[in-house]
Amino acid sequence: MIRLRLFLHSLGPIGVISIVILIVLLGSSLLAPWLAPYDPNQIRMSERLAPISGEHWLGTDTLGRDVFSRLLYGGRVSIMLALAVTVATMLIGLIIGTLAGYFGGWLDDVTQAGIHIFQGLPGLSFMIAIAGTLGPGVESMFIALVVTSWADFSRVVRGEVMKIREESYIEGIRAIGGNHMYTLIRYVIPNMIGPIIVLFTVRIGRVILSIASLSFLGLGLQPPTPDWGVMVNDARPFFRSYFHLILAPGLCIALISFAINCIGDALRDALDTKTEKAGWLS
């Protein structure tokens, strides 16, 4: 309990607000089956484009589906997919970046070349190309997203490892007899936890945005899946007269990536061991 309070204190007000937003959005997505007043995919042509009312809190869309229900369901796939993509990216990035940064030499040269190539490619276009070639769907989106984001991650991890490698405690544990494996697992990785958590949150936010963009472009999740990106696309033809149809999912996308980014920033400050704030870690 004390640790939780310390943690919240160390995050600061914006961090706490962001956490609340995130909990509300995640919670409502998770509990969507119980919270949603209607089936998100039930089409009622008689109630097309109904205005906001007590019956339909956010009105209905062009096929008469309840927008509020769709909104509740709309985060599920994106968030799960974003989590999966980020975890996968992180693992790849961590392994490549750590090995390259720690051992250096030809291994580093090779990975650096790879990183430069992938970073040089225009992210979104490349992503669209991959998703387009593989055909729309969750799997192709997963592949497209991982392929376009591992390089960034590796580069940051590599830089972080190279910094840590120079610290005397690394030479110290080597002199005591720690082998490379021991040094990497016990000394190098724990000392990057801060930057990794921050990178993780920032990434997740960006991946959610990318998923929304792909879905909006018709390359990601396909209608009728209730998804924020798909919903924005669906609402596009009507946005002059039915602005709320585009605003509601758009706001959800913006809020969640904003919240996650703020949490990332707050975590970065909170994880700085040198400040007394990081007491909750120990």
């Binding site: 005397s168 405690y169 110290g172 002199a175 000392n191």
Partner: peptide, 15 residues
């Protein structure tokens, strides 16, 4: 055989 280094601020695992 042991070795002791110059910089106290980075001599030990910070965590």
């Amino acid at each position: 055989m042991q070795i002791i280094f110059q910089h106290p601020d980075s001599a030990l695992h910070p965590r």
